[in-house]
Amino acid sequence: MSRIAATFAKLRAEGRTALMPYLMTGYPERDSAIQLAPALEAAGADLFELGVPFSDPLADGATIQRASERALANGTRLEQCIATIAALRERGVNAPIVPMGYYNPFLQYGLDRLARDLAGAGADGLIIPDLPPEEAGACHAACRTHGIDLIFFVAPTTPDDRIAHIATIGSGFIYCVSLTGVTGARRELWSGLPAFLKRVRHHTDLPLVVGFGISSAAHVRDVGAHADGVIVASALINAIDQAPPDEYVARAADFVRGLRA
């Protein structure tokens, strides 16, 4: 059983919602993720989404755009993202780690080489927001060869027959986009979210992980009633931004602990 499957099986048995914080590699400082991930795991994180910065993140809102720009300005390269995963495994981080990035840097690195190096470093999956199933063939094959899960998205706009298709090709979990829009912290969740998640659930037994706009413990509770996990990204980055520079690791851990409250 893959690390992702094992994590969700355990959480399901315990009746808990998976908490999946998003960390941007190279943000706020070059090696921050190596400090942040162990602290967040201790604070209750169950999986990690590890951002790979890109110059043109067109599915992301202002917060992640800014983090991406800063990470690139800090000199973050794809090789470093892969090395970060290996370093986290060496430091005893056990939670599944799923890198997330836009397609072009992966394509230039070479898809087979990427999947091999990610698997070798201890990554468990891969999330690519601008790679819909129609274009994912080569990348999906490379991921299967090297035993990592290519994570597919479904959105509120996705029709039922397409959800059914994505459910048959997906593995690991299904990334459910919580709203029609870009990433970014929101005060309130979309009122149609429970019905949307029910619609997705009808087509698959894969874990459903909800991302975009999840910002508070109340959101985590509400979404947890209909899904297996939540991704918290922009709100966590905001917490890191607002912390004094020498305290951001502790503040980020506090924020993650608070999401369980």
Binding site: P132, E135, F153, A155, T157
Partner: peptide, 12 residues
């Protein structure tokens, strides 16, 4: 060519 777009836009 092709269509490398976020899932939200696929139906549109």
């Amino acid at each position: 060519g092709g269509k490398y777009i976020p899932e939200t836009l696929a139906p549109a």
